[in-house]
């Protein structure tokens, strides 16, 4: 880490986010910054608003109050079409499960984001194959998600999230459904790739061992960030 004298401008910054699901408040004034190339863990107990925070930051959900700025653009004000495009090209998402299309093979699942941005099929499949190999999913390119183990499927998900060369990867409990060894493999694959490519990662987890892969940790409690650096 090279320390600069001036404070670096964050790549993604949320200020005073508020969001309710019906009458239940999920976020009440949460502020988070994600710097370029940084891996940030967001931890907190169930129901503390972690997933809602990720949805707001990734432009999946529009906050009720506050702002989300991504490299000079106000995400909370962008039209859905542009948000969808951003999510397709500049962001990658990994959920606990569900982001793979069950009917598509591993290779086609990874190639899908490339097809959506107009890459020819053969090239998309070739690049998808390279990414699968990087994540150690070799010889299983033609399997469908249902035929793979949870750890393999999650590595395919990572490949799909990273194939377009995004600037930010959002991972919501990426190891939540895995045993600890498979979880370690997924996490080290994610961390190594992100560091090599200089990708920022926002990692949601309730597991401290997963959060320890990050450079920094933000704790959420009841929809707000717990102040850090308490002096004893």
């Amino acid at each position: 880490m090279n320390h600069q004298t001036e404070v670096p401008v964050p790549l993604l910054a949320a200020r005073d986010l508020a969001k309710s699901h019906g009458r239940t408040p999920a976020l009440r004034g949460a502020s988070v910054e994600l710097r370029e190339g940084e891996i940030l863990a967001v931890t907190g107990p169930s129901g503390s608003g972690k997933s809602t925070l990720l949805h707001c930051l990734a432009g999946i959900v529009r906050p009720d109050g506050g702002s989300v700025a991504y490299s000079g653009e106000r995400l909370d004000r962008l039209p859905e079409k542009r948000l969808s495009e951003l999510r397709r090209t500049e962001f990658g998402v990994v959920f606990q499960f569900g982001q793979l299309i069950p009917e598509l093979t591993a290779l086609d699942n990874v190639a899908l984001p490339l097809l959506l941005t107009g890459t020819p099929r053969a090239e998309a499949r070739a690049r998808a194959g390279e990414w699968l190999e990087r994540f150690g999913v070799r010889g299983q390119e033609e399997l469908r998600p249902g035929e793979m183990s949870g750890g393999q499927a999650q590595r395919v998900s990572l490949a799909r999230a990273l194939v377009t060369g995004p600037r930010v990867v959002f991972a919501d409990e990426p190891t939540g459904a895995l045993d600890s060894l498979a979880g370690e493999q997924v996490m080290s694959a994610l961390v190594h790739t992100a560091r090599e490519a200089g990708t920022s990662v926002l990692l949601i987890t309730h597991d401290a061992r997963v959060a320890a892969y990050a450079d920094r940790e933000v704790q959420l409690l009841d929809g707000a960030v717990v102040p850090q650096g308490v002096t004893v």
């Binding site: 949805h55 990734a58 999946i60 079409k81 969808s84 495009e85 951003l86 999510r87 397709r88 090209t89 962001f91 990658g92 998402v93 959920f95 569900g98 982001q99 299309i101 069950p102 899908l112 984001p113 959506l116 799909r160 999230a161």
Partner: peptide, 11 residues
């Protein structure tokens, strides 16, 4: 699954 696809940017 469809919601996850949309979240991942599939138009």
């Amino acid at each position: 699954g469809l919601a996850a696809q949309a979240a991942a940017g599939v138009p």
